[in-house]
Design a protein around this nucleic acid. Sequence first.
DNA 1: TCGAACCAGTTTTTT
DNA 2: ACTGGTTCGA
Length: 749
Amino acid sequence: MNDSPLNHSGDISAPYLAGLNAPQREAVLNTEGPVLVLSGAGTGKTRVLTTRLVHILSTQRAWPSQILAVTFTNKAANEMKGRISAIIGRPVEGWWLGTFHALAARILRANAEQVGLKPNFTILDTDDQLRLVKQLIQAENLDNQKWPSRVVLGIIERWKDRGLTPERVTRAEQAEVASGRILDIYRDYQARLATLNACDFGDLLLHNIELFQKAPEVLLKYQQQFKYILVDEYQDTNVAQYLWLRLLAQGHRNLCVVGDDDQSVYGWRGAEVENILKFEQDFPGAKVVRLEQNYRSTPHILAAASGLIAKNAGRLGKTLWTERAEGEKVRVTSAWDGEEEARQIGEEVEALQRKGHNLREVAILVRAGFQTREFEERFITLGIPYRVIGGPRFYERLEIRDALAYLRLVNQPDDGLAFERIVNTPRRGLGDSTVRRLHDLARAQAISLPEAARRIVETDELKPAARRSLAGLVQDLARWRGLAETMDHGALAEIVLDESGYTEMWKQDKSIEAPGRLENLKELIHAMEEFENLGGFLEHVSLVMENAESGDRDQLTIMTLHGAKGLEFDIVFLPGWEEGLFPSQRTLDENGLKGLEEERRLAYVGLTRARKIAYVSHAANRRVHNQWQTGLPSRFLAELPPEHIERRDNQTFHRGQSRMFNPGLSEGRWTGASYMQRTARKPPPTIDATAVVAAESPGRYASGAKVFHQKFGYGAVVSAEGDKLEIEFDKAGRKKVMAGFVVPAHEAG
DNA sequence: TCGAACCAGTTTTTT
DNA sequence: ACTGGTTCGA
């Protein structure tokens, strides 16, 4: 079936093709050979993806089992499933449609022995990973202060993202981090995972790759099976995922990747924009389709976003256009501090409400999680219903992880990490010293921790009390395992939590969270009932667990820019556009220009979420970690094309504002940490209009001039450079301050 | 073994 | 300011 799809006259008139524009059709109909679909924001990407799958299926090019469709998130996978089943009129069954990790896990379960795992291997959660790494750091006598487990795990994960097993980490690279000590940890870590019959998320991919290399016949089988491969959000793939795809795609070479290089915002966790940038080289003869017609935003929003992203170098380049009516310009406002910014947005939201806008269609997109607080506080006082997306997930909660640890132990008797987690929860008098003993024994005998427990209770190694207690636990576990043979897993879970005393522990607990935790445990058991067996449930938990979506009530959404990728709203507020916060100083420090470009893409993502109106704002002062900082307007503000934005400065602030915008922000004159200065501890007062007006005439502060600052009090100018003053304050010491925020001392009042 | 006292580190997040 | 982790003393 290698002739052009266009020869199939039936294709063109198929009902599912109706309403697609020309490039979209091309993306759907070019089924053979490598295809790169560059889909800008709001160009109907998901529609193209699903239609393409339906097309392949309904022209009988392949069976569902011969199509591999890969997404990053379960949400995306579920959405795709839902849309496909809506078109084909039956549930999506027998498809290979899922996340990279879920699909890789499926392949790995079927071939686990080939890479030294048992098919019932455990997939570790982040918590397990961290505890493991911490143990290894201590065992290696590495300075825990200098190398916190989170950092070490991060390094290991970045290596894994790049497909580097310990043997493949280069010398140069290992020398960079703690003279190779981290590599030792990495090696230990992998060894421990092997003995635990466990793997982490990165391993799912790496073991697949190893499997494919070790067992070419297995690879061949999958290569032949997957006639068509489809990848969503290709710009977010890391090297390991790329290698995995490349291996699988070498059979039929029908690889279609969809993505947008301008929306690559996950570099910090290993994504490589380069994957999408070099797709045409990797897959010679690749057909490139550009989806550029935007169906989402107004021309002003689109132009503002396009103008901004045009500052990035090394793009594949797209020109988004729309047939939509002009709409409104992007509104830019300023505030004295974060509180005022929240107040302004709150007022605007109320105004929108009065105009009849549904709050479901309003979102506030922030750079960092801590920014949500100010808005929450404001909305509570105003009585505006809201929801914050991105809190702790159900399966990350303490009580859920504990309960799961019990269940994992029933499912996999040698799960050492689960054992360690619950050995003294609830309290059983089995503290550090006992656990250390178990570890020693386990290491000496090369057995698992639970196995060590099973053996040690047969000896007089432990004190009678500890021995009795541990023996009780060992017996319980064995008994539960026996029950698992015959009993429904939901009922079993209840018994386990009951008999272990875990439920009782929370009933006794008088803290305010305890009732909620008991609720969650009930919910957990409820969730289990939907699964065939315990193993299936645990797999689901580690790989496929979703946040329970709160219903679509009439409430506005607060979330991070990262979280908003792929979503859209009528009205979007983008607060906190200040140097240091957005672009984030840390990204700038760590990744330089590359980091800046990623931040800019994030800004682009934010703007393009809006269908009708986008509000951008910044505050001159902001409390971060309870310290007041003075922030300059983000350079991204200066990069928005002026003809597509509308300044909506409130009157008190207007004059000071214009000063803040002007001085050559886009010239990159100021770099690094000087963008944000740490200032005093007390909150800034509301702005005094006279102060701003007074500062209007430039150059009036000569060295030595006495000035007054709202926050710092009186001081003398040390030096002045344009708008930036360095001032020796009487009380607050030497600070760098914008001229707009001081008045001559004699005018202070 | 456990609670109180102290101390460091605070972006983004999925699987 | 707050949290989570570690350390120290009872």
